[in-house]
Structure formats: C-alpha cells, structure tokens
Nucleic acid binder design. Structure first.
Length: 571
RNA sequence: CGGGGUGUGGCGCAGUUGGUAGCGCGCUUGCUUUGGGAGCAAGAAGUCCCCAGUUCGAGUCUGGGCACCCCGACCA
C-alpha cells in the first residue's frame, strides 16, 4: 500500500471523548471512528488488525477441531421464548419487527440459534463431539457503552459451541478450547491470566475468564501469588474464621438516631465486624433477609446464585417497615417470623453480635446466630477483600483490576433441554446434548494489546497482528535517488509477500516518523539522502534499539530474517 | 436508570455587560523547505445540537427536548 493513497486519518491531538490509552490511540491512529454511542466504524487500519487477529483465532480454533460457520444476526423471537431469554435479556436485547409485525431479536449471543441448528438434524452419538464456531457481529443494547471499543453495543465475537454426549466429553471439549485460547492470546502478544468466574445469564455449571490486568478493567479479580489461585470477585471466596465475641443473653440497647453500621459501631464502641448487616430484599415477590458482617459487602452475583434467581431487589422503605415494624437502620431477622433468612458463611456460629431490634432507636446486643436468629441457609455472600487468606493455600490474596478478553462456559443441558436438542445413543435412547460455549471479544484483543504495548509516541504492534509489518519511509519524494531506492525496496518486499506500507507522501521526515510511530508499524526502513550517501538504508524497530544500516540489496533478506524470528519465536 | 459534565468550521478550543462569530491544527493553491509533526502568502469551509420563548436584536437569557462523555448496577 502507498500511504499517499491510503485512508489512514491520523490525529495529532487526543480526541476529547477518549480517556483510555487504547481508545485515544485507536482514534489517533485512524483505526476506528465512533458513529454513535457504542457503535464504531472499523477503518482500513483497524480492520487490518482485526483481520490478523481473526486469522490467528481461526487457525487455533481449526487446530482444536472446531468448524467455522456463520449464523444470522437476526433471529425469530420464538426460540428465545423457548429458553426464556426473550424476557431474561430485557432491555439489553435489540428487538425489531418485520412488516408482518413478527418479533425478531438482533442476537446478543447465539446459544439459541446454535442449539436450534443442532436439533434440526437429529444427531447420533457417532456425530459427537461437535464444535461449531463463528466470528460475527453481536448486538447488545448496553446500558452504558464506554472505554472506546471495550464496552460497545456492536462488536465482533468469536463464539464457539461444543456438543458432547457426556460430562467427560464436555471436559475434553472445554479443555481443548481453553488451550486454544491460551495459544491465541499468546500469539497476539497479550499478557493474560485465567480466573474462575460467574456464569451469569449463560447458566451452566462452571466457567473461566481470560483476563488482562488493567487499571481500566471493569472486573476485579482475586489472585494468589503463592499458589496460582485466581478468581473473579463475583465468585472469589477467602477463608476467614467466624467472629465469636463474648456472648450473653440477648439484650436491647438504645441507639437513638444511629442507623448505619459506622454510626452504630461507633456509638456502641464495638468493631464494625461485630455488627450483622441485615438487608431486606424482595426475591420473587417475597421478602428475604440477607445477612453479612458489618464490615462486609454483599456480592450481588453471589446473591443471585444463592437465591436461585436474578429477580430480586432491595426492599423499599415501606416494605421494610411493614415486614419488621421498624424503619431502615433498626431491623434484623431477630424475632421476625415467616421471613426467609440467608446468611454469609462467616456468620455461622457467630455470637455476641449486634443488629437492629426492629424498633426504631434500638439495637440488639449479644445476638447468637442459631439461638436468636434462625438461618435457613449459610452461603458465601460477601465480597472478598485484599489481603485475606487464599481459599486454597491461605496466603494473602491480591485484588487486581482486569479486562475480560474471553469467557468459556460449561453450559451442560440448559439450552439443549429447553430447545429439545438431543442425540441418539447406541441403544436408541435420546439424551440432551451436553454443551459448552466459548467467547472472545475480538476488538478487545486489539485494545488490550495497545494497552500493554505503547509508548508516548503511539502503538507498538507485535508483528503477528500489526496492520503493516514494514513501513518504508521515503524521506524526500522530490529526490530521485531516494524515490528510486524506496520504490525498488517496496516492489521487492511486496513481491516477497511482506505486508509493507510505502510512505510516499510529500511530507517532511519528522512528520513521517511521527505518523509511523503512532500507527505502530514494527519495522521501519528509512530511505534518505544521508543514508544513500553512505550507501545504506536503515532498519529500525518500533520497539526500540539501534538502527541497522545495510546496503539496499541486503535489506530484503534482513527484513525476512527479522520477521521470521518475531513471528515464529524459538524457530 | 440515578449522579456529574459537555455540545461553536473536519479535529482541539476561545467567545466579555445580549449587538450578528474567532484562534490553533487540518484542508485547497502557490513559492520556499526536507533526518523527528516546517515557513510565508492567498483561499475554502460554521443550521453556534434542536424546538419554543423573552428582546429592536440571542452562540450568550428562560423553558422543553436530543446527543455525547465520565462515575455507579450488566457482559466479550
């Protein structure tokens, strides 16, 4: 490509809408442009990067035995109604009607479509396992798009779906995907780690996420340096002993106007951890008390799993008053009949605790869990904290912010059962397919690479995903010798199938250098009057280091050498 | 959906007590220049987010709406 003909609208200044480095650099390097909130246009440079990422993903998926296909974006409502997700997705799903007023979904994900496909041709045990994948646009009406291309309403996902006859098969399919993912991210040059995760709306028995550490990440993960344990805070637990404070008979104590944990703890001169935070929720239209220690926070994803439903909300002030007879700040399950109580594991056997007396202006002291409160169920409900003991080895956990790049799920039979997708076994019996689903956000890979690989001048692409491998900078297009040498090298490299960009623009050298650095081309060959006077061209790595000066006729070979070393390290 | 912020040439911004819009970058043309975002000269380009109102007169004041960005609940 000749730069003079390329549409690479670089920007000298940071656009005002961008905060994250990757967002700024994607805009400044002319990779993308925002059309509206959470919807981006991929310009030639950005699309080239995505194509390279996709090529790597395709290779690794194929290597792992998956088969590529392409499913529609638009899909009739019926199959979503069959699984219940027509409602579950709520406002997050774009919906359209056709001319006959029939409902369609713009697919936010494809479990329903793939499962419908799987059932359309009755599969035999002989057909299994199967793994089908696609790279396709997903559409989600995100409540708040942000961070450039990281959280958008329109993005390209690589999604794969495995079908097996049993759990052992699922484990094999799952592990094959996990290995493929590790290879993909390694080849793309991103540093990542794997964490145990929540399955959320996908359902199923287990999942892991591929994370990239970043202060701008939306997820928080607990990581143990000592044993390698790592989990999203949505599921991470830690091992802490239950609090046992000196007990005694239940006692009411006046706490006028003291409502919050902080206020009550200070007023009674007890640590916050001696309080029980009694939160009233309405789950499936019924009140339920959720208890955690005063110094803990309820973790909502954990609560979803504990309650077995996402259909819950904090009770209103009126509901609290009606249920307990007291106002918010003075309530607890003590002596409240007929309300389900679910408590954090920490509170099992806790004694000497403080919580509301269900009478405005009063709290109870010496609450003993079990004696004064009947807990229906103890579950891990609290959010783990920095420095707490790792559940597997006891060493302190570190919390770190991260961006989710990929997520793999063991779905089990959630979709195959709902949609009646079965296979026939040897004895002629029919069984639901055991499924897994595996997603990667392709734009996020590009964004994460930039987050990890940039400097003050711009992006530093690894060769594997660089939009161009080499830029030939002709420093003065009016100098015949320079242009001759540059054109000759450009032709030579193009013929050798090197992805090369010839900077033949009528611009000053500094301008060209800045632009080349900004878009992050890994190798630059400088063709200038100075070098030619010495009989050399100069090869410079974007990542840094001294320029390599070589006679023009040796440049192509040297470049091929550099490319092969970086593309196939170790060979 | 709650809280905060911003809407003015393509981009980044300024615009005073209300008097009919300017700066830098970019773009076009010409000349000079050519090893880290050049200089001079000339030029094109703006429904001042939209609607309504106040006023002789609104980018500026009032009301309503819309869009976008940031912070919190969801996910690749």
């Amino acid at each position: 490509m000749r730069w003079s003909k390329a549409f690479i609208p670089t920007l000298k200044e940071d656009p005002s809408e961008a905060e994250m480095v990757s967002h700024k650099l994607m805009l400044r390097s002319g990779m993308v442009r925002q059309l509206t909130a959470g919807v981006y246009e991929y310009l030639p440079l950005g699309w080239k990067v995505l194509l390279k990422v996709m090529a790597i993903v395709r290779e690794e998926m194929d290597r792992a035995g998956a088969q590529e296909l392409l499913l529609p974006t638009i899909c009739p409502a019926e199959i979503w109604q069959e699984t219940g997700r027509w409602d579950d997705f709520g406002d997050n799903m774009f919906r359209v009607k056709d001319r006959k007023q029939r409902d369609y979904a713009l697919c936010p994900t494809h479990e329903e479509v793939i499962t419908e496909l799987a059932r359309s041709r009755k599969l035999s045990y002989r057909d299994l396992p199967q793994n089908w994948y696609q790279m396709q646009t997903k559409v989600r009406d995100e409540p708040r798009p942000r961070s450039g291309v990281l959280r958008v309403r329109h993005f390209i996902m690589k999604d794969a779906y495995s079908m097996d006859r049993d759990e052992a098969g699922l484990d094999r399919s799952y592990n094959a995907m996990k290995e493929a993912y590790q290879r993909i991210f390694a080849r793309c040059g991103v540093k990542f780690f794997i964490v145990g995760a929540d399955s959320g709306l996908m359902g199923g028995s287990g999942s892991q996420e591929f994370m990239v550490a970043s202060p701008s990440g939306e997820d928080t993960c607990a990581v143990c340096e000592a044993c390698g344990f790592a989990a999203n805070l949505e599921v991470a637990c830690s091992t802490l002993a239950s609090p046992a404070f000196p007990g005694g008979p239940l006692e009411e104590v006046a706490t006028p106007e003291q409502r919050t944990v902080d206020e009550v703890a200070a007023f009674l001169k007890v640590p916050r951890g001696q309080l029980i935070k009694s939160l009233l929720y309405i789950a499936d239209n019924k009140p339920v008390f959720v208890l955690v220690r005063g110094d803990d926070e309820v973790n909502e994803p954990k609560l979803v799993r504990a309650l077995g439903t996402a259909a819950f909300r904090p009770a209103t002030a009126e509901e609290v008053l009606k249920t307990t007879g007291a106002n918010v700040g003075f309530v607890s399950p003590v002596k409240v009949a007929g309300v389900r109580v679910i408590a954090d594991l920490q509170l099992r056997g806790a004694a000497g605790m403080v919580s509301g007396a269900n009478r405005d202006g009063y709290h109870y002291r010496n609450i003993e869990v079990g004696r004064d409160v009947t807990v229906g169920e103890f579950r891990d409900l609290r959010t783990a904290k920095h420095g707490e003991p790792c559940p597997s080895c006891g060493q302190p956990l570190a919390l770190t912010q991260a961006i989710e790049l990929g997520h793999i799920f063991k779905l089990g039979t959630k979709y195959s059962q709902a949609l009646n997708a079965t296979y026939t076994a040897e004895d002629g019996s029919e069984h639901p397919l055991i499924m897994g689903s595996y997603g990667i956000g392709l734009e996020r890979i590009a964004a994460c690479i930039i987050e990890q690989r940039h400097d003050k001048d711009g992006i530093i692409w690894p060769l594997a995903v660089a939009p161009y491998q080499v830029v030939v900078s002709a420093l003065n297009v009016h100098n015949e010798a320079v242009m001759q040498a540059a054109e000759a090298l450009y032709a030579e490299l193009t013929q050798a199938r090197v992805d090369v960009l010839l900077d033949d623009r009528d611009q000053r050298p500094g301008f060209k250098f800045k632009d080349a650095d900004l878009i992050g081309v890994p190798l630059r060959v400088t063709v200038g009057e100075k070098g030619l006077a010495e009989g050399v061209l100069e090869i410079k790595r974007r990542a840094g280091g001294e320029a390599i000066k070589l006679p023009p006729q040796q440049v192509k070979q040297k470049i091929q050498e550099l490319l092969s070393v970086e593309l196939f390290p170790g060979k």
